[in-house]
Nucleic acid binder design. Structure first.
Lengths: 336, 336
DNA sequence: CTTCCGGTTTACAGCGCTGTACATTGTCCG
DNA sequence: CGGACAATGTACAGCGCTGTAAACCGGAAG
């Protein structure tokens, strides 16, 4: 079962290696008869081109890296799916790179000690600032995902967080809610996401002529459903009154749902809840979860198309694509 | 920003390419002074080895492919995470290959037209039989995941489905349930999983001296939460009585939970529910979901270690590893 | 009949790295 | 002081493929 090489095929067919290569690549100027003969030789030997060698010769790997915090976070796994599909469509393979939000791992993703592995990188940073990123990756084609503030030299895809938060909050206002909490800011949260979402939330309140009360902006220990639930429980225990919650994250929303029910509050009767990311889980909580829904498919296709430009040699300044979002209205908010 | 090559470093340091290579690889027999000099040259030029070239020279790619039906199915995304972590630990990178349960895509995974891309493949087949697989991949190091019936030539990792189903059913029996349904068999389900789980379910009933009633084995249209829920709703409408449900899948269980509640049944009061796979979602349903919990981390590490053997040249017949499982008891079943 | 031309095909030099075989140097004994 | 041996270092041939430049060939044009 020794590997069959191009030259083996060439010898069997009695032609040069290059001709075989041309047949493999469907190069048009090959005489039909020869093409036929070469093809049979290929079939007979079961020849399969060695991609590594091809890569070394062409300098292209046909692979992109997808670097995300966690494969099994619903938002990222859903996004990965679309990116994998879009990449396949465009003829790329996807290498996964799980950073687990670790700064060292994030740095490794782009400042990798090795090179020539992938043609480009799609990266959802958590810890790294855009400046670090730009410094480490001056050459690599790169597209950033998420809410990192406008990088200067790097392409970037996101949704309009302010507008989305505004709409989510508005949805609660429309159904008559007046005391709406925001869940939550987190210590050490250096992502811009929270800030922007909080901004949209405040803007909606202001537009409705309502006061923006700092009490209503809750704080959570960390990013998890439990921590979100605890924040709600504590707020309730402290006597805070609210009839709606806008969450920066479905995980927080799920925690909130549980905590509210545990405290005897009905959802959405007493308190309505809006989540964020429209993940799979929200369809199976009870009640089901109303959630801001980024257009994940659009994120995937925009990211790939920006990346492909860069791979093809585009050198301009960072481009920023805002893709669409909507509000998936479900059981955790009353029909407005 | 031209690429820096090994030879550039060698020239700057005034040594041979191979010595630079030795320094890069921490080969022990290099004189400290020389090592130092080479290292500075590396740093000065910012040299980064070209992996593609290395691969061509060594014949090893340091990558494995992970082929799964869907990246965003909770079970698979959780498993992917562990596999990605384990692979990183062992120095491999992971290429994802999403089959979407499509027979053509599955075939492509192993019978790929190209070669030399990865050192090995971890594959969770859905459509392909083990015979097809063996035929297509006579040379590639390969490890199968899931319940494909004992492949002869291929390594394989799974949990003991019969035992796990038995335990899940027993758990319901222990709490006094006597009419336990199985959710569900599906038309065109050619996976062995359902069969084995059904077997364990029946065995538990027999051991408890209970009749095995075909009525209690429900049928679902397809694999989805909705279809699972519908099956329950229909059974209820047809007047079927049951006080427990063992589900072959968390998705079915989630659908069942919703359908039972919609029909006014309390869970676990009237009907207790056991799911399968212990996915993330089950922690956030209400009630939370008791579920058979395969040891996913063990699956990942066993799979990698079998695969590594094969990559290292092991040629024996297929080995079969049964890894552990447990029952994650939560709110959908009464404490027994 | 020769020339020219475009479509075909070939030979061969890399792509950047590593493994092998061999050369060199230094050290330790007898 | 010479020889044996280990420790270091080098030269160079590939790994399998593709790009380039050049050769080839049959027919249309002159």
């Amino acid at each position: 079962m020794a590997r069959v090489r191009l030259i083996d095929v060439a010898e069997l067919a009695g032609v040069s290696m290059k001709t075989v290569s041309n047949v493999v690549h469907d190069y048009p100027h090959v005489a039909p008869a020869l093409r036929q003969k070469v093809q049979s030789a290929i079939d007979e030997l079961g020849y399969r081109p060695n991609l590594t060698a091809r890569r070394l010769a062409t300098g292209r790997t046909g692979m992109i890296a997808l670097a995300m915090p966690e494969m099994d976070h619903p938002y990222f796994s859903e996004l990965s799916r679309y990116i994998a599909e879009e990449a396949t469509r465009r003829g790329y393979r996807v290498l996964i790179e799980q950073t687990l939000s670790d700064p060292v791992a994030e740095r490794a993703v782009i400042g990798d000690r090795e090179a020539g592995l992938v043609d480009g990188v799609i990266f959802h940073p958590v810890q790294m600032g855009t400046l670090d990123i730009a410094k480490l990756a001056p050459g690599t084609p790169l597209v950033l995902l998420g809410e990192a503030a406008m990088p200067v030299m790097t392409d970037h895809v996101m949704i309009d967080n302010v507008a989305a938060a505004l709409e989510g909050t508005q949805h609660l206002l429309d159904s008559g809610r007046r005391r709406i909490a925001f869940l939550a800011v987190t210590d050490g949260d250096i992502t811009g996401s929270t800030t922007q979402r909080l901004l949209g939330y405040q803007q909606a309140l202001i537009e409705a002529g309502l006061p923006v009360s700092p009490d209503l902006v809750l704080t959570a220990r960390k990013f998890s459903a439990e921590a979100g639930g605890d924040a709600i429980t504590e707020a309730l225990a402290a006597g805070l009154e609210f009839d709606g919650v806008v969450c920066r994250d479905d995980k927080f929303a799920i925690g909130a749902l549980k905590a509210l029910q545990a405290a005897g509050k009905s959802v959405p009767g007493d308190v309505a809840v809006v989540g964020w990311d429209d993940t799979f889980v929200g369809r199976y909580t009870s009640p089901t979860l109303t959630s801001v829904a980024p257009d994940k498919m659009a994120i995937a296709s925009e990211a790939l198309s920006l990346l492909e430009d860069r791979i093809d040699g585009y050198q301009g300044v960072g481009r920023h694509r805002i893709v669409g979002h909507s509000l998936a209205v479900r059981g955790s908010t009353p029909a407005s």
